[in-house]
Simulated assay, not measured.
Amino acid sequence: MDAALFQITERVRAALADHTPLRLRGGGSKDFHALQLQGDLLDTRDWRGIVSYEPSELVVTVRAGTPLAELEAVLAAQGQCLAFEPPHFGAATVGGMVATGWSGPSRASVGAVRDYVLGVEILNGRAELLRFGGQVMKNVAGYDVSRLMAGSWGTLGLITEVSLKVLPVAPGETTLRFDGLSQAEALQRLNQWGGQPLPLNASCWVPDAAGADIGTGT
């Protein structure tokens, strides 16, 4: 076992013996959330690195403490990306991205974080290292614990490794802006666009002194 993972495992084992709660944290980029921060800090950032990456298979396996920006840079070099556009809010990590389950504006058209999780390795409350899922989309053996980890906020176990489906970067995108639309008009246009086969990633209606602006990206 790698030294960094061994230390994390020993921390969990010691906390179990002492009945001491642990506060799991990667980059701390989601600390502003309303969840109460309590317990001894267990930092995962030493457990980092890309375990395997097969661009032709659209699959990457990465350790939880890996900076999200680092993973996205590696994917971008191959013309690929995390299609659900995870927010960073600073020094986000891959484990934190999955644990919080937060997606970006493209969720409406491509799906959420959980839809791209193929497999996970976790450390449970008994300091046992468990694996669920795999590195393929068609994995139907047993319960889908892998996707259950998305949005669990560390309550079901410490994510140590995750396999993700990635997608090619879109060949192009554009942003449209329309001035002077009322809220009703803006909603009407969004409903019309929503009924078409367009990958709309985001929309925004901003009132101003002259009326309002609406913008949409695809």
Rank of each mutant, 00 (worst) to 15 (best):
E161M: 11
S152R: 07
V140H: 02
W153M: 09
F178H: 08
L130A: 06
L148E: 04
I159G: 02
V140G: 02
F132W: 09
D179S: 10
S152K: 08
L181T: 02
G151V: 09
G151I: 12
D179C: 09
V145E: 01
G142Q: 05
I159S: 01
L148D: 07
G133M: 03
V140M: 01
T160Y: 10
V166P: 00
L164Y: 03
N139W: 07
T155R: 14
L148Y: 03
L164T: 13
E161K: 08
L156D: 01
L156Y: 06
A141M: 08
P168Q: 09
V169W: 04
R131I: 03
K138M: 03
T174W: 15
E173Q: 15
M137I: 13
V136C: 13
V136P: 14
F132G: 06
S146E: 08
P171A: 07
A150R: 03
G157A: 13
N139K: 08
G157S: 04
G142R: 04
V166I: 07
P171W: 11
N139T: 11
R147Q: 05
I159M: 11
T174V: 15
T160P: 07
T160M: 11
R177V: 15
L176E: 15
D144N: 06
K165H: 04
A150E: 02
G172Q: 07
S182M: 04
E173A: 14
N139H: 05
G134I: 04
R147I: 00
R147T: 11
S182R: 03
D179L: 11
N139E: 04
G134C: 07
E173F: 13
G157W: 03
T175W: 02
S152E: 14
P168A: 12
D144R: 00
F178N: 01
L164A: 05
L156W: 04
G154T: 06
L158D: 01
N139S: 05
S182K: 01
L167T: 13
A141C: 12
D144I: 00
V166Y: 00
L176G: 08
A150P: 02
L158W: 10
V140Y: 04
M137A: 13
G142S: 12
S152W: 06
Q135N: 15
T175E: 06
A150N: 03
K138A: 08
T175G: 05
V162D: 00
V140Q: 01
T160K: 12
L181Q: 03
S146Y: 05
R147M: 02
L167N: 10
E173D: 15
W153Q: 11
L181N: 06
L156E: 06
L176I: 12
L156M: 07
L130E: 05
F132V: 08
S163D: 13
V145I: 14
D144V: 02
G151D: 04
M149W: 07
T155C: 12
L156R: 03
S146H: 06
V136A: 14
G133Q: 09
A150L: 07
G134Q: 05
G180F: 13
S146F: 01
K165R: 10
V140T: 08
K138P: 07
E173C: 15
V166H: 00
G134F: 02
A150M: 01
A170Q: 14
G180M: 08
V169G: 11
